[in-house]
Write a protein that binds this DNA or RNA. Structure first.
Lengths: 279, 279
DNA sequence: CTCAATTTGTTCGTATGTATG
DNA sequence: ACATACATACGAACAAATTGA
């Protein structure tokens, strides 16, 4: 049995896909540079301790993805094409968040049995007397990248039902008068796609996702907005300005709104990690 | 061919593992509550459109994990045991970050051919004349959860080489005098484990990770500290106080350091998404 | 130009794992 | 539990293209 199989047997993912993943990462991280010749099949089978055919299968995957091209007798080469990625930057500040989603046009999803109440953890406030459930899909360049499931306090929703169904709820919420916000926070963990999420986001079941929960609490401690957002893991990037609030103990001149410049829901081109794990 | 196989053929992960993933998520998200009977094998094969044996294989996986227990003639039940998780909270503010890592005792890793310079993207400053490379593994309850690879400007390192090798570099850096920090930020994307990372973090090759880059730039625009941190995806959680900096347009009383209370490198028990994708 | 070395490409045969009915 | 089909992985042998001596 190969070393890969032995050492990492926790995973029951096919070997040639694991090998392809490692090689893909080397390309995207520039460890194997564009245009360069990669190690020979013999060297690769020695490194990964797998059979010739298995390496070939991995190479074939990357060749189909356009990351490698092979020449009999010469070797296998990294494609010249840029492997840059587009990211949706996750906002880390209220005003930026609100501003960034104003332009979004959500595609509403019909939900059969919406949960009447959100499940609130400690620190997420107390439930409102009633909620409406809004579900939508977010797109960027016709590609789905996020699913938004929102519990919005009924009393808030009924102030402007039309706006809330046609625009992002948080943007409408921010524009309403007489709303007193005591708390607004967002948590992010890495999860994996279930059946419905995989289907909507066009990823594999079990592929990694970013699970965000955004909670807005009013002055009475009531959770008026509770949103569970599931992003494709390859679509989002977080940028945190560590000096946004206070300053470290060194002297630094004031930089009025440096943070807001970089955040928002813009896309950027940058080098990075990988395309997707299981696709 | 089953619907799963057809629809989600992007993934070449075995069907029974996909089914197990979906069922695991339902248990951890409380959709299937502790102690309750889950749907019968017949119902499950209909829902997932897979063969009886395939569902059984999935159930067997979860039974071995202790999440389910079966009783012939009665049905299959969700175990009562709590499925809570521990999280390492990722700090989102400089002072909190520094404070949170002060207690950490890194286990140094020897590196054969350390890269002399970090690869700096736009907005990450200009390179210092020289760097030292520090590599370490972070533990929580004897479990590895993060790999830290740091480029520290040589001139900074040489002010106190001993401290920098024995303590977290960022903590030492923050305590040095005469350091002028212009910029400090952290970016986070979701990546996948390569061979070395999988080995160190005890996860599968290709399993999702959180790839963090922390950059500190001095007043001359030089990147004096560039750290690439790879976390197990199931170990970390981000908590962002959206109101930490400014305030939304509603009236809110001052909450001096609400942010710093919640952040830091503490562990918490909470419900969540999944144990691991590929393990 | 030929030859040999190198490297990718192809094809067996075998064993085991996955999935169905 | 059984028979069937296909995917995964191995090892080995051989074919075809490229390179440089």
């Amino acid at each position: 049995m190969s070393k890969l199989q032995k050492t990492y047997d926790r995973s029951r993912v096919p070997l040639y896909i694991q090998v392809a993943s490692v090689m893909r990462q080397r390309i995207e991280s520039r460890a194997w540079q564009a245009g360069q010749k990669i190690p020979t099949l013999v060297e690769l089978e020695m490194e990964f301790q797998v059979a010739r055919v298995t390496v070939r299968q991995a190479v074939e995957i990357l060749r189909e993805e356009g990351l490698l091209h092979c020449q009999q007798g010469r070797g296998t080469f990294v494609a010249d094409k840029a492997v840059n990625r587009h990211w949706v930057k996750l906002a880390t500040e209220w005003s930026v968040l609100v501003e960034s989603i104003k332009g979004n046009v959500p595609r509403r999803i019909k939900v059969d049995n919406p949960p009447a109440f959100p499940t609130l953890a400690e620190g997420e406030g107390t439930p409102a007397p009633g909620y409406v459930y809004l579900s939508s899909l977010q797109f960027k360049k016709d590609q789905p990248y996020g699913i938004v499931n929102t519990h919005l306090a009924k009393q808030i929703f009924e102030r402007d039902p039309k706006a809330f169904t046609e625009h992002p709820a948080l943007a409408v919420l921010a524009d309403l008068d007489n709303i007193e916000v005591q708390h607004a926070h967002q948590t992010v963990v890495i999860g994996s796609a279930n059946l419905q999420e995989a289907d909507l986001l066009k990823i594999a079941v079990g592929a990694p996702t970013a699970e965000c929960r955004c909670v807005v609490i009013d002055n009475d401690g009531i959770a008026i907005y509770v949103s569970d957002i599931t992003y494709r893991s390859d679509a989002i990037k977080l940028h945190i300005d560590l000096l946004a609030g206070s300053r470290p103990h060194s002297r630094v001149g004031d930089r009025p709104d440096e943070a807001s410049k970089s955040a928002g829901c813009d896309t950027t081109r940058e080098r990075s990690a990988r395309e997707r794990l299981l696709s």
